[in-house]
Write a protein that binds this DNA or RNA. Sequence first.
DNA 1: AACGTCCGCTAAACTGATTTAGCAGAGCAT
DNA 2: ATGCTCTGCTAAATCAGTTTAGCGGACGTT
Lengths: 341, 341
Amino acid sequence: MGRNRATLADVARLAGLSKTAASMVLNGREGTRLSPEAHQRVFAAAEELGYRPNVAARSLRTRKTATIAFVSDIVATTRFAGGLIRGALDAARERDHVLLIAETQGDAAFEQYAIEAMLDRQVDGVIYAAMATRRLAVPPAIHSGPVVLLNATSPENLPCVLPDDERAGRTVATALLDKGHRDRIALIGRNRLKEREAEVSLAAQARLRGIQDTLSAAGATLFADVFCSDWLPEHGYAAMRGLLTRPTRPSAVICMNDRLAFGAYQALGEAGLAVPTDISVVSFDDDPIATWLRPGLATAALPHEQMGRRAVEILLDGGTTEPTLVPMPLRRRRSIAAPVA
Amino acid sequence: MGRNRATLADVARLAGLSKTAASMVLNGREGTRLSPEAHQRVFAAAEELGYRPNVAARSLRTRKTATIAFVSDIVATTRFAGGLIRGALDAARERDHVLLIAETQGDAAFEQYAIEAMLDRQVDGVIYAAMATRRLAVPPAIHSGPVVLLNATSPENLPCVLPDDERAGRTVATALLDKGHRDRIALIGRNRLKEREAEVSLAAQARLRGIQDTLSAAGATLFADVFCSDWLPEHGYAAMRGLLTRPTRPSAVICMNDRLAFGAYQALGEAGLAVPTDISVVSFDDDPIATWLRPGLATAALPHEQMGRRAVEILLDGGTTEPTLVPMPLRRRRSIAAPVA
DNA sequence: AACGTCCGCTAAACTGATTTAGCAGAGCAT
DNA sequence: ATGCTCTGCTAAATCAGTTTAGCGGACGTT
């Protein structure tokens, strides 16, 4: 790859100057006393030869590669997480950096291998990303340089970027209160494990807290709490069916994520109930499916692109060790309406 | 990153040998005459120091970086295409390579920039991937080394990896024929543009051909052909509604992709019709949503992981210039049944 | 005239590996 | 004793950049 590329020596020769001079000119070094003509000749020569510096050679001396490692447990392959990568890619490009990507697949040996492979390539920093927002243990090898956690926290208080799930909980609850729902708001997707274990999820607890705080501030409480063993459509379906067997029907349902909401829609459809006329539905994530449902699902969007961006910005531009919370904007779609009577 | 790593010189010193000796031992060079004791001492020293070679330094000399560029139009961020990356990542790891990822976002300037950034880093080869299976123009800069097209072909007949859409068409049609459907099979998702312009899609034409060939071989023809301006749920919904207004109802529907099928399910649900009791549905892609639908959607799966793998294998292990067609296995789910009388 | 200073530039060292060319000593034949 | 080959190893060049140290000449000062 890249045979017969012009080297700096070629440029210098063509410009009739030394490699030193050429290097300094091309790097725009201040305080050098090279003449304007010398500058011109170097630029002209570089242009003529289509010169591009060899990053390997440069990094050997400078120990900078303009390359960032993006290591994730499994994030690269999931529907959501493309956004994390895309944001990171974008921000990296703006700073003339590129991304080396690796996946650990949740396996410690893979992880070790992947991180070493990145360090061997002298990456300037590491972004360590998780698929589900959670706390995790950072492998020690990574500590040899700058790190930012993405969608995760660690006991060591490394800089990290997280979605602001608690505020999203408030947003979602407020959206319902504003429409006039109050005493018949149900919640689908309670889950002891997710709420308790930070290593499993940070989102569940935060979303729940945001919802509950907002409701109690308005003098309301949840009308019903449905627990689900996981957050998949089938669980949302079962949960909604359960809710519909009760004597009083909820006027609105908050689902802990869009997949649950999808299941809930299915159950409502089968029961012949309409969203939002009979029941309003609101949710979290903004999975692509939220736009495909009929009517569109109102949901607090996981700002994956923004998060990916911020991670790179913090890594490269420096920034707080404080966790960075990225807001989750509410996508207002037609699944919310005022309750009927 | 990676401060105070041991260098080859450190290893050599500790082993009491020259850098040359250490290098040869660690690279397992044949035909060298270094003693068994020398081997031992070098290995011991490397182990003790935790030596790992500096890839930049090595590649400066050898012009190999064990790094592959994965350049895509927009593939990295879409729900599907994670599989392409994951497969490539896996195959690369097996061969001790890593992936540099870039996205062109369909913009020629970005593309130019991205490819140059990769070439500057002396990648050993390039995988050029497209989101939608299609023909595309490969930027000239890329030709300076090995390339494999992924999910795409080019006029230059570069080696490429494609899903076998035509065979998938046959598979899908056969699945319906086998159940006893014959004269009332409808197709949703005909699209002149996609079928005609290879730069837009290669899948549409191939799938259609597979379906039609199989049906006519069985002495059948399509009962109805519904055209759609795009392959999104809303189009599938409208198409199915249209079909249901006809005097005779189809016994089975083939959708050109799962999103259309999702829309079709929605229309069926509203019409109070059940899948597969009233109508069988079968489709292409195996989008995650196919498993979430009730009942699960039978569909010919885009083998993204396999495709990603194959691309790396062809790039690194060498292989045919012939297009590689990767089979699309049918995921048998409950959306297909025998027609009711 | 001698000295110092600034200007414009360059030689050479350095980064960490691989690779080429070749050296010293042992053993053997003549 | 001389020459030859083989063994086991090393010095030095090389890759393509960056960076340090410093050189020769013009100019101004005393």
